[in-house]
Design a protein around this nucleic acid. Structure first.
Lengths: 337, 337
DNA sequence: TACAAAAATACAAACGTTTGCATTAATTCA
DNA sequence: TGAATTAATGCAAACGTTTGTATTTTTGTA
């Protein structure tokens, strides 16, 4: 079922059929309707391979995320889809599994597929960026989100990590906590680095010195959170700002296990507002990231670059975050059931 | 950067280059190496549009899920990716948002893209299957998973919903609950229908009659769960089997709000083992579905159909589920913190 | 009616591969 | 050494579109 079949059926040429189907002004209204009718009747589906081969670009946008099954990323994907599909693009999705090698593999697949643009959040593993550097030279638009490398060409959409951390820690201070620890992530990633800076800024502002023993890095998982919390408690912490909700979860479970009360003995603040944060008891105070909005903006950015055929811009959008105060940081009030 | 560029560079023809790159036996070992070296050096990326146009099929598999950000579905996607990528395919993902119309739209996009096969879990909205019926005639392999329509051609991979429900309710009975209610889903979907049947079978087995007021249907969301639980409590329920964890969550929160104790006054059993089930207090007993395994099997099935070029098989695989017993169903033992 | 202008359609090449068939080069065997 | 066989390469068409240019048809105007 091709354009030529329709052409034969109607006794016209493939070119007019093509133009009729793409609503070109160069074809008579009557024949346009006839063509579209016949196409419908014959169950014609245009062959996008042929089309994009001829046009030199596909209507596909490639997206690489570290983990598809992480709440934040799957919601960013939703946000991207919501914009990209109505605009006539479709999404090819790859998972890097936090591995640089897989990231490169995915990128190569995208290039083979002549994607119109690439949206990516870097694998934690990635510290060589040559696979991404080549893109702007090839004219392939790149949008980075969340985990970004600053000096790469293209648009960047990031959370306001600094402010989220800053606001959260200020809130801890206001709640009366005196010795606030930080379970940080991998500091070569902008997101965790900025959160650390927000934490330090909040402490500095009130003249609270900081203590090396109060900061543990590379704490991202639940298990790591459980391990790290004991260290900072031993160092005298009465509150902890965790750079992610999973480490906060691990910390909370460990704290409970030790018979300490959250938030009375120890306050816990997370980041990401994973779905379970609300459900836990005590409910976890956390910084909410607007994943859907980030997805929307990333999609808009890539579409704009594609349409302007400009892969060399260099913009950064910071998406605001929101502190969601729950039970885990409000002292003198045992809300545990 | 095309095959012809490489050919010119080496003074040979595009055809030999093509054969060299695809490791054909019809080309000399030496030239093969030379070609691959030059390809590497020149940064050649094959154009899959051209290739699939010529070959008549793309190396892309289309996948439609109701919601990408649901734990179960995103994990199935992971499972599919893990098999499909090493096999040289890539995944085009669509979200139906539980809407029939979007499902059709996604399917059409897939057909335009000449996908090699389609993996789908039906939108709850879908009760007309003509868009899927046409596929086998067109030679496009179809694999359904989780939410399936029986009389469609293709492979089906489903959870053992009946057994999961049956085992769960048996467990409730063994725990000493006497009047077990069921918050069911939308019964036109196989998954919820089978869970209902498992529930009924367990009751019947011990001669426990069932009561219409004990079964509320179309309860899938958290809010619906909260609403429905009051009805069945009023009808005298001392335990509830929820067809999904979200309704179970809603129910639990409502039960707590009413000052009743889980599991002592009321037992709660969920289905899906969402990540929060483990974390809640009391922790929610739930039936775990092996999403990753389902993804693996779906991927294997579609690849097999693609390779055999047979879209007309009609198989069903049932993937076992596992009851995970936690605090919410173990009486006389207040484990709430 | 004739002629220019505009509108509609046709023609043909191109996008980058793949692949059956034809050709040339290399090898084997008598 | 030369014919027969095999291995390696070349040629050219095809996949289904799109699109610049050419041609035909229609329309408007003098």
């Amino acid at each position: 079922m091709t354009i030529s079949d329709i052409a034969k059926e109607l006794g016209i040429t493939p070119s007019t059929v093509s133009r009729a189907l793409s609503n070109s002004t160069r074809v008579n209204e009557k024949t346009r309707l006839k063509v579209q009718l016949v196409a419908q009747r014959m169950g014609y589906h245009p062959n996008v391979m042929a089309s994009s081969l001829r046009k030199g670009t596909s209507g596909t946008i490639g997206m690489i995320v570290p983990r598809i099954n992480r709440h934040f990323f799957s919601n960013v994907i939703c946000g991207v889809e919501r914009i990209v599909n109505p605009a006539g693009f479709n999404l090819l999705i790859y998972q890097s599994d936090e591995q640089h090698d897989k990231e490169v593999l995915g990128l190569q697949t995208f290039l083979k597929n002549r994607v119109a643009g690439i949206i990516i959040s870097l694998a934690s593993d990635t510290d060589d960026y040559s696979h991404l550097q080549q893109l702007s030279g090839m004219g392939v638009p790149l949008v980075q989100f969340d985990r970004v490398k600053d000096d790469l060409q293209g648009a960047k959409i990031v959370n306001d990590n600094f402010n989220g951390a800053y606001l959260g820690v200020k809130h801890l201070i206001k709640s009366g906590y005196k010795r606030i620890a930080h379970l940080a992530g991998a500091l070569h990633l902008n997101v965790y680095n900025e959160r650390l800076n927000g934490y330090l800024a909040a402490l500095k502002e009130i003249g609270m010195g900081y203590d090396d023993r109060m900061i543990v890095t590379n704490v991202i998982t639940r298990d790591a959170g459980a391990d790290a919390i004991t260290k900072v408690i031993d160092a005298g912490a009465d509150a902890v700002f965790c750079a992610g909700d999973y480490s906060a979860l691990g910390a909370m479970l460990e704290i409970k296990k030790r018979g300490l009360i959250i938030p009375d003995n120890i306050g816990v603040l997370g980041f990401a507002n994973e779905p379970f944060a609300e459900i836990m008891s005590p409910a976890l105070t956390s910084v909410e990231q607007n994943a859907f909005e980030i997805g929307n903006r990333a999609a808009q950015a890539i579409i704009q670059m594609i349409e302007k055929k400009d892969a060399t811009i260099n913009t950064e959008e910071v998406v605001p975050v929101r502190l969601i105060v729950r039970e885990s940081t409000i002292k003198n009030n045992c809300l545990t059931f």
